[in-house]
Design a protein around this nucleic acid. Structure first.
Lengths: 196, 196
DNA sequence: CGCCCCTTTGACAATTGTCAAGACCTGTGG
DNA sequence: CCACAGGTCTTGACAATTGTCAAAGGGGCG
């Protein structure tokens, strides 16, 4: 999937990770959300609100023409209900992320990101107590764009988490969280506050 | 309206401004959205997602029991459509704000906030070229919680904008934007990027 | 093998936060 | 009417976090 084509289609994300980004005139960029399978991608009733969708990993999608979907939606309340649910879920996530962006320190942001990814790449597994290992869908630069940090600060926080014994950097993109509880503590997340 | 009662009711905001906030265990607080009349307040299909609604100004609302609304929604596709639309609008706003929180400087954040408020308090008037004057719905401390800044930084940025001739501080909460274009430039906002 | 990209690390600078003091405004009560 | 008490806001000096610039290591791929 190439970037930018979401303006005219809806897609059903079958596998992989897609990043939604917003960009300032001078090039500063913010990732405003990640989509994991089986999310819908596309903005009902509107050209995408100055927002780009771009594959973060290799992805497979199932796309429909936008006009067709918009017609389908109005004729099918259950479909609209499903999209409504996803919009609400994305709204909850966006607002949780606003708390992270606005209030947390660099260390807390990075821990929050790791926890967020851990909960999404493998929703079933993440409840376990033991260590969790997974592949990061983003580069350090992209993580920085997600967290409102520079690549260097992200890298330094990874190092700090590694030295503190909270994580193991198996291989650049491959991370092992030695204790989800410890990561949650670093991220300043209570048990009930996130369902990521 | 007292704070916290949104968990059990839906409300239609008739006048005034309501702030939606998220809070960390140690007290750090983030305002994740403002609601202006005639918005709906309440999270369909779920207890409010660890989110507090609190009046920022004197407000008047029309409230319904949550259970009643949830039943109404499933039986009325047009109602669900209306709520879906508002959720999408709030999602667009939240993501725009994420760009502000993650990427903009303190000066740009404050200018963005002023532009945001100007566009909401009086949607018709804000298109005009000339100066716009209005009452801020938030204190400096609340503006800080919205922008991820301290009260002192917010205050200093107000002073800088005043000295630069972009705004006039008529009286603490009463602000006059001498040129919307200039504010947009300070906020790094292009014409098309926001419809606030 | 060698190039390129991603990542890490260090030294230093800039922005923003912290702490403290004082100004200003408003409402209250003498 | 004035004094005072309690907010809110502004300003200054200084500290801390994070960004910038630069250099070097490491792995993948042609």
């Amino acid at each position: 999937m190439s970037d930018g084509d979401e303006v005219t289609t809806y897609s059903n994300l079958l596998s992989g990770v897609v990043k939604l980004t917003k960009i300032l005139a001078d090039g500063r960029q913010q990732i405003v959300g990640l989509q994991f399978a089986p999310d819908f991608i596309g903005r009902p009733f509107k050209r995408e609100n100055q927002l780009d969708a771009e594959a973060a990993t290799t992805v497979s999608v199932c796309s429909f023409p936008k006009s067709m979907m918009d017609r389908l939606i109005v004729s099918s309340p259950p479909l609209e209900h499903r999209l409504h649910q996803q919009a609400l879920k994305e709204l909850d996530e966006a607002r949780s992320w606003m708390l992270t962006l606005g209030q947390k320190t660099a260390a807390e942001k990075v821990a929050s990101f790791l926890y967020y990814v851990a909960c999404h790449v493998d929703p079933e597994r993440s409840h376990l107590r033991g260590p969790v290992e997974f592949e990061l869908p983003l580069t350090r630069a992209e993580i920085g764009d997600f967290l409102g940090l520079t690549i260097e600060t992200v890298s330094r926080q990874f190092t700090k988490l590694r030295k503190s014994g909270a994580i193991e950097i198996v291989h650049n993109r491959s991370i092992k969280l030695l204790s989800l509880d410890q990561i949650r503590r670093h991220a300043k997340l209570d048990h009930e506050s996130w369902h990521f």
